[in-house]
Design a protein around this nucleic acid. Structure first.
Lengths: 295, 295
DNA sequence: AAATATGTTCGAAAATATCGAACATATTAG
DNA sequence: CTAATATGTTCGATATTTTCGAACATATTT
């Protein structure tokens, strides 16, 4: 049972060029060498790969399977070497980034575009996460970088983080919502009378924490802040939103911010990344994000 | 760019055994050969795999990636050869069978003996599993056939199954256990007063399910039904057992079945197998098991 | 400081791959 | 139909690669 990649390349060449002779020529070898390689492989593996039909050889079923799957193997081998080279040169082969929904993903695309111009060969994977979900992805190693998430639990090793902005949470409702008729500031009781819109934590084992929304309210759970804003504009419910994401809706009066008795505190948001990744791409993005945050 | 599977095996051995010397020994080679192979691979690939730190060598990031992905490659290569063999002979080269502890393994040996007489050359590997463990092994591909396990989750692709028997669960205690003095049927409260014996699920991530045993009882966890029966006979605790496995103990009065207020329901047991294995041996065993189940 | 274990270098020996010529067989051309 | 051509195999000679073992260098442990 001693498969070699080189032998698979020979099989591939035979099939691709149609004959032992043509394969030999393509491989800059002599025909007898090809014969030798095939025979040796057949002996090593213990089954016949080509049934010799006169001068034309055809693949046996087992040989056919070997070739087909073998090609995948060759491809995978090449990709591994490729990736290793990239890592060696300092660039990761892939970089997985999670963007918290609190942060506007549109702000991020220009940075990605800038990165692409470096021609690093690094594959960037973006995912949108919500609240706990982004950190969970970071801790479990599914992503290397989280933008706009909450601060990591302090005990977590191997993760660095830095605050990049503070979100001001406003309590907003649609322009014609009944609560706009109520005297300000709104009490907890006023609010409880109406259904709320919240963002569903994308972490798998979401902790039971009623972030921003008081208990026992009927709530609509949506998957992202974009959806939440739409739901609020439509008047489906009420809820808190970060000011910077709804400035437009406030300006054109689609949403109204209402003063309430117990206003939500500002929440800090962070850029968090894994320290075991020493690649240039991660470094580049972190630098870029922190630099942008200073302005 | 000339990767070879053999070189990957050397890398794997170095990492697995912790040093060049140990790897050499494991590969029945001399240390200088290992050095040679590594150096040659480094030269062929064009990057350093091990950073030499005195006598201890540590993987570079690129080397680490190469090893990690290379292991997958080796595994894939093995599977390809295995599949080709299977196609070639019609017989698998190996067949891994898990037998749930609910099923008496002694019943199974005659079937294995019968199979050996066919001289198929198929290597049979038997393993005993408990409850979820057998299915986990099937889904993860560690075994191709499970006898006596629970039914697979319906969503699982690539697995067929058929019920082969129904187990009646009796609540049993040792002949001189205090519970034999209590008036029947036993209430839940009666039972809670005594420690129970349960079988520990052999799956790695065993779900928290209190199968057959009520909450909050002090329990002794054992590894198989055989052990459980012994523990019950010794009077260490009480618990449910399938009737067919303790008939002998009931007959010679080592165990006593007691009627209880909430009897355990009969549980169906299945024969489950992977459908991607088209080999004759799996087919043979499945046929045999199903046929025996009909009687 | 001595003993032990690890990794490397290097020349010799062993194993393996490649070549080229001779031969066998099938397809094609005339 | 026969000759010419192309393909695949065998086999001895040659070239290349791998392996070994001894000698040496270096780090860890006793």
């Amino acid at each position: 049972m001693k498969l070699t990649l080189e032998a698979l390349e020979v099989l591939d060449a035979i099939d691709r060029h149609g004959s032992f002779a043509a394969a030999a020529s393509a491989l800059y070898r002599v025909p007898s060498t090809v014969t030798y390689t095939v025979q040796k492989l057949e002996e090593d593996l213990g089954f016949v790969i080509f049934r010799r039909e006169g001068r034309r050889s055809v693949l046996t079923p087992a040989g056919s399977l070997l070739l087909e799957r073998g090609r995948e193997l060759l491809l995978a081998a090449e990709q591994i070497v490729e990736s290793a080279h990239q890592v060696n040169s300092g660039w990761e082969s892939t970089l997985n980034i999670a963007i918290d929904t609190v942060w506007d993903i549109n702000q991020f695309y220009p940075i990605v575009a800038q990165f692409q111009q470096l021609n690093s060969g690094v594959q960037i994977n973006l995912s949108a996460e919500v609240m706990g979900g982004s950190l969970e992805a970071l801790i479990e190693g599914r992503v290397e970088l989280v933008i706009g998430g909450p601060p990591p639990v302090s005990s977590t090793q191997g993760i660095k983080y830095k605050q990049i902005f503070t979100a001001q949470w406003l309590f907003v409702v649609a322009k014609d919502h009944p609560l706009t008729k109520v005297q300000l500031p709104l009490s907890e009781t006023d609010i409880k009378a109406y259904s709320a819109v919240t963002i569903k934590d994308s972490s798998k084992n979401a902790p039971i924490m009623a972030h921003r929304i008081f208990d026992r309210q009927v709530t609509l759970r949506v998957a992202s802040l974009e959806h939440k804003i739409i739901a609020l504009v439509q008047g489906v419910g009420v809820g808190f939103c970060p000011r910077h994401r709804i400035q437009q809706q406030l300006d054109n009066k689609q949403l109204v911010a209402l003063k309430i008795a117990n206003p939500a505190e500002d929440s800090p948001h962070y850029c968090s990344w894994r320290t075991n990744n020493k690649g240039k791409a991660l470094r580049w993005f972190v630098d870029k994000i922190l630099q942008q945050a200073q302005n």
